[in-house]
């Protein structure tokens, strides 16, 4: 075993400390590089168990925002984001109204009053083997 002089030992400790500090800074630097200022937006939403939405129900999901429809043919969904400029639609007796610019859509999502020109897009709903519903925005 090589005898380590006191001087060499202190030098080793010092260099070790300096290397360690550099390594810490490097880890921090990597985390900085890893930061994504434009993270991908959530496109999938777990809606819970399908039995929460009985046959014939039309459920507004305000956080998405979307309308989940449970018809005889199965589950479907409509986006509740106005196709004009993106405001969140509000339900009314005939369908949906945009509180920003008064575009109106019928219950099936068709435009009945501008300025919106496009109908509300249908969103894909998936039933998982665990009988849970997943809604996909894209």
């Amino acid at each position: 075993m090589t005898n380590l002089s006191r001087r060499d030992f202190l030098k080793l400790v010092r260099d070790g400390f300096l290397y360690l500090s550099g390594a810490l800074a490097f880890v921090g630097f990597l985390r900085f590089l890893d930061y994504d200022p434009n993270p991908a937006q959530k496109t999938e939403f777990d809606l819970g168990l399908a039995e929460k939405y009985p046959l014939g129900s039309r459920t507004i999901l305000p956080d998405i925002p979307a309308l989940l429809i449970h018809a005889e043919s199965g589950f479907t969904a409509l986006s509740l984001t106005c196709t004009h400029l993106g405001c969140t639609l509000e339900p009314d007796t005939e369908g949906f109204t945009c509180p920003c610019h008064n575009s109106r859509f019928d219950a099936e999502g068709k435009v009945t009053h501008g300025p919106a020109a496009k109908p509300l897009p249908a969103l894909r709903v998936e039933l998982t083997p665990e009988n849970r519903l997943t809604l996909h925005l894209t």
Partner: peptide
Amino acid sequence: LLPLFSFLFFLTFLLVW
């Protein structure tokens, strides 16, 4: 000089942080 550069890198990081 490598350990010294390593420490300077650490100090720079601390300042930015």
